[in-house]
Design a binder for these strands. Structure first.
Lengths: 162, 162
DNA sequence: CACTATATTCAGTCAAGACTGAACACACTG
DNA sequence: CAGTGTGTTCAGTCTTGACTGAATATAGTG
């Protein structure tokens, strides 16, 4: 079942990716798809992914679409082929980071809501303000890092031009 | 049941906290405990929390212990009282941020593992290196923000001295 | 227009784990 | 040592959502 060819290292890597993504609220299969496509040079078809991972085509269809919606995967066509192919989006690291940022943003919003709550003890207010400051700073720093990354010098060559 | 007194705003806030923490892999009740203690000036007993939230004491016992282990809650005693009381740890924002950092660290480790995989296409290697660089930078920036926060000027006064 | 290849959707199964009440353990008190 | 207040653990229920095979849609091909 699945993982027919290729080294067991890669299989292990894909599994790790699956488990890790599970912690972020993604289905395990979605994580495996990401792991697989992360290390594959060519786009893979839906059937190819399903067979390679040893899971149902239904799951791959659902999860791949979800990942496309999140912007971390791209659906591409191959000339003379009716199948859908998938590959990592060119800005996928950015996108998955943004996914994590929304979590931070919501947490920050929660802290702000807490600060606006009526009848707060001064000590509580201060605790909230401090936490809020920390998370605001982290968000800022992360956004900056993202900006720096976007402005990074373009890659020298690599096969894939676009 | 539960939320007997206090404004409905607070009840809503606690619920939001519960749902938000669920996304981070915590039981909803753990999130509610955090929300409740975040806005309460005094430590609360296990029974007090359970009654206030309208949940079983068993859940509060389990989840509070978990939060204490994570370092975001502190178990304190009150003189002349045999009960356990809980309050937010003084460094709780730091701790929950660190929790998030371990996720980043694991993700980074996964990327590194991918880079060490045998027989990599150059384009893939470059993609991995770029992603790795982004996440490394984010981790660094976050750690810096955390340092800044630790070095922040101490609070003016507030009721709770320690 | 049949026919085929492909992708999506749906009903159903299954597993994980949150939550609970009740039993239990523990440690004070008199 | 019984009795009581307190925290923990456990067996069982229930919800959620991942995953699947099969049915269904969609679009290309002759």
């Amino acid at each position: 079942m699945g993982n027919r060819d290729s080294s067991p290292c890669i299989a292990a890597f894909i599994e790790r990716a699956g488990c890790l993504c599970e912690r972020d609220g993604l289905p395990r299969i979605a994580g495996r798809i990401l792991g697989l496509l992360l290390v594959s040079a060519e786009p893979l078809s839906l059937d190819g992914i399903a067979e390679r991972l040893g899971v149902s085509r239904a799951s791959v269809s659902t999860d791949a679409r979800r990942l496309v919606e999140q912007g971390v995967l791209e659906r591409v066509g191959l000339p003379g082929d009716r199948k859908d192919y998938y590959r990592m989006a060119s800005d996928s690291p950015e996108r998955s980071l943004e996914q994590k940022l929304v979590g931070l943003r919501q947490f920050l919003a929660l802290l702000d809501e807490a600060q606006r709550l009526p009848g707060q003890d001064p000590a509580v207010s201060e605790r909230l303000a401090e936490a809020s400051a920390l998370y605001r700073d982290v968000m800022l720093a992360t956004t900056d890092a993202l900006e720096r990354w976007r402005a990074r010098p373009p890659a020298v060559a690599a096969t894939q031009s676009a």
